[in-house]
Amino acid sequence: MTSTDTHPTADAITWRPRSRRVTWLVVVLVVLVALAAASIAVGSRDVAWSDIVAALGGTTDNLGQAAVTKRVPRTVLAVLVGAALGMAGAVMQGVTRNPLADPGVLGINMGASLAVVVGLAWFGLSSASATVWAAIAGAAVAAVFVYAVGSLGRGGATPLKLALAGAATSAALTSLITAVVLPRNDIAENVLSFEIGGVGGATWSGIGTVVPFLAVGLVLSLLSARGLNSLALGDELATGLGERVAMVRGVAALGSVLLCGAATSVAGPIAFVGLVVPHLCRLLVGVDHRWLLPFTALTGACLLTAADVLGRILVRPSELDVGILTALIGAPFFIAVVRRQKLREL
């Protein structure tokens, strides 16, 4: 399941035939399109097909059409955020060589959230791009901090130490976020959206602000794909193969921090997407990061869109934030990964 497993049929798992990967690529793309369509068609309000088509054409004559017009940016945001988180998780698992790495589990999304919340409450942060910058800075600080704490002591950053440091940091930051937001009635309206992520508040302008950041993060992550393949062999071997290990780590980490920081600045902290998606994708396309990274983006988009649609169906006429559903789906998965690990690795 993980790249570190030594399996009798490791070769067969690692290098999938190209045709099979292409098949999966088509399947995932079809699923994504279907989910996006469902996300536009399904919601807390039933809208007739004719109205949906009319709304997509740009008319907002009745309530149904207006609802659909709001669902379109929401769907786009879910796809973008899911893709960003899925890929960020894959890159983090590659950089730390840790099957438990995830922007949520490691507390990085919470770092981004805290930075945004502090900016809003104390420094009068108002412009959308400043929010994104604050989130990215918070994510970067949290990432460095968790990695530093997790790699203290003997054995460096073992999966267990890193996961514990991340979980502790995440819990700590959650408390701080609540303490910062609660006294401020003017921003307390959003308290839950900073503690539990969701894509309900999507707007075109918000999406426009984060897209450049996401694009840069995406490019940096994809550029480091080949380097991550070498890193999987271990630092010594990677260096021996001529890889500049520190450089690869730096670029990949920057890419993943940009991705999850920007995603958190628009959607709040959403955990476990980055954990689940890479593990699933490795089963489908193997461990080659050049294939894995684009796949995790697509699958992440599928997962988040599906969770968002589900959240709108489950508690009609109300809505369930997507962050709640991803935790409900993702936490059992986390437990399964913990259980699969060999004793020595944990």
Binding site: L160, F334, V338, R339
Partner: peptide, 8 residues
């Protein structure tokens, strides 16, 4: 670790 997952 499992407890942390359950907690979440």
């Amino acid at each position: 670790l499992i407890g942390i997952g359950v907690e979440a």
